[in-house]
Design a protein around this nucleic acid. Structure first.
Lengths: 324, 324
DNA sequence: CATCTGATG
DNA sequence: CATCAGATG
């Protein structure tokens, strides 16, 4: 499978350029970054970041669970999002596709000039999960997945290192309608993933910004009605307790930190026309370690943006306020 | 599986009514007909025929390949069709569903009062093939399939006997994009099905009216452009030759018989916006034996009716002109 | 390109 | 209810 990916890259690259066959599909080196591509199935979608470093001290980072890349492109909502949000960096969840399935012309049309793209697609189940990072600031490096085979099949993590911070985009496994994956999620995934975050933060020696659909509502304030939700995925005691262990490690839910009382949701089930009646859940987050919070300016939830069952969230940071 | 079907019937019938467990799911007896239901998975959809015999000497029989019963219902096109066509009897092809999947309320709403319904769903592949007959004249008997196991899995045939004729509704197996089923279609299905028709006509000793998507275009006149079509399903030499053997047995393509020069199509691929440019095929037919043709008044192709990739066709007959 | 199913959320 | 894949036409 690795061979296949690399072959695809070769096909798409100009013939004089080349990527070493030794390169794994898990690590995005400076070399590949220089070509504006990733190795992991997205070689066909070029793009060159406008900036090699942050042009401004203010940076806005967005996260959006798009519930299908194909759908948001075809509805014109990806283009609309990029034009209106003008993100410096945006992390996508649930792309739900292999990139071979996406028309490269349509994707190109949806993304303004000056962005480069990194996509991590599910290797096993097709049309499932998957993440992406689109950025106009060139990352120093990009890594896919967390280096533990049993967690690395579904394209759930992309880690992009920039000069001033490391950004981790995650789509946490949902426990399932019947909670069939609750044990895997809380006892295996969460533990290993939280360890991965600690490891990255220690290794890189710079602030870590985590964002994504964490598939857990933290508290009563984060769900429209707790009644009967203790046996519903994203609000089981197990998931909430597991999330609490992460918070106990020192990581801070920036939205709740900034707005201790605010009731705003990021996800509205399509099953019950939930958005119109504001029956939502807050399950998409930005999380920073408490020692790295100084640079956080704001964290907004953009409820009015349509196109998915999740709405986009935005973190604004100020690099001049970074804790040294 | 038979047990299951019968159990379903029981559930839906008034408790004082009952159907013998001995009854097979292949034969619709007078008893079940009396309840306005069929045994074959459609028990939940009642309905009572308005007429127990032909109220008029003129009878109009329609056939329409609807490309998905669910879709035509949801688009409102089934209701529109029933209201505009006012068929005495209509045969549907490609219902593409199990009736459990259809909202019985929606189906009820789409069909005017006074019709009873017979549905033959694919037993193996779900969402595939399937036929139906909806009639406001109560049939004397209704049979499903042709009594040969290898042909009877996909719900392709319903035979309804009326006082003055026997009606066979068929959805002939398509040979497939890659012709993978061409041999089955021409060497197994066609042979056995044509024999079945002869048998029915002999046994019933009354005119046989065959209608359906026969998945073959008879001649150059029946296809918008023959170029390259010799290797395309519905126009291979094998399919056309097989169809010719049927014609050689004495069965007459009523449309071509009435209109020897007319170029009208019944199917327009959705793949190329074919309907707007009239790039169609004539693959839906009414066929009667040459000895039974006297009662045929007209056979119309209703090109302007939308809702499917096929258009409805109509046979008008006059029972007073029946050959004795 | 349009239908259906089945998995998933 | 809405996404995607894959089968089928």
């Amino acid at each position: 499978q690795k061979d296949e990916d690399i072959k695809e890259s070769h096909l798409q690259l100009d013939s004089k350029k080349s990527i070493s066959r030794q390169q794994t599909n898990k690590t995005q080196s400076n070399l590949a970054g220089f070509f504006g591509i990733t190795i992991n199935k997205s070689a066909k979608f070029h793009g060159e970041a406008k900036h090699s470093d942050f042009p401004d001290s203010k940076v806005n980072i967005w996260h959006w669970n798009i519930n299908g890349l194909s759908a948001v492109i075809n509805k014109g909502m990806l283009q609309k999002f990029m034009e209106e949000a003008k993100p410096d960096i945006v992390c996508f969840n649930e792309i739900k596709t292999d990139l071979d399935k996406i028309s490269s012309a349509k994707l190109h049309q949806s993304l303004p000039e000056g962005y480069e793209q990194y996509w991590n697609c599910s290797k096993t189940k097709k049309g499932y999960a998957g993440t992406g990072i689109v950025t106009r600031i060139k990352p120093i490096s990009v890594e896919f997945d967390i280096g533990i085979d049993k967690h690395d099949d579904e394209g759930r993590v992309i880690t992009a290192e920039f000069k001033d911070f490391t950004l981790v985009s995650v789509y946490v496994p949902n426990s399932g309608d019947d909670l069939r994956r609750l044990d895997y999620r809380t006892q295996e995934w969460d533990k290993d993933f939280f360890d991965y975050l600690d490891k990255i933060r220690t290794e890189k020696q710079k602030p870590l910004i985590l964002t994504g659909d964490l598939n857990v509502a933290r508290n009563e304030l984060d769900i429209f009605d707790v009644k009967g939700k203790e046996k519903v995925a994203c609000y089981t005691p197990q998931e909430r307790a597991s999330f609490q262990t992460f918070i106990d490690k020192g990581y801070v839910d920036t939205f709740r930190h900034l707005y201790p009382e605010k009731r705003e949701y990021t996800y509205f089930s399509a099953r019950t026309n939930a958005k119109a009646s504001n029956k939502g859940w807050r399950i998409d987050y930005f999380m920073l370690h408490k020692d790295d919070l100084d640079m956080v300016v704001d964290n907004r939830i953009h409820k009015d943006f349509n196109g998915s069952d999740h709405v986009p969230i935005e973190l604004e940071i100020d690099l001049t306020k970074k804790n040294k």
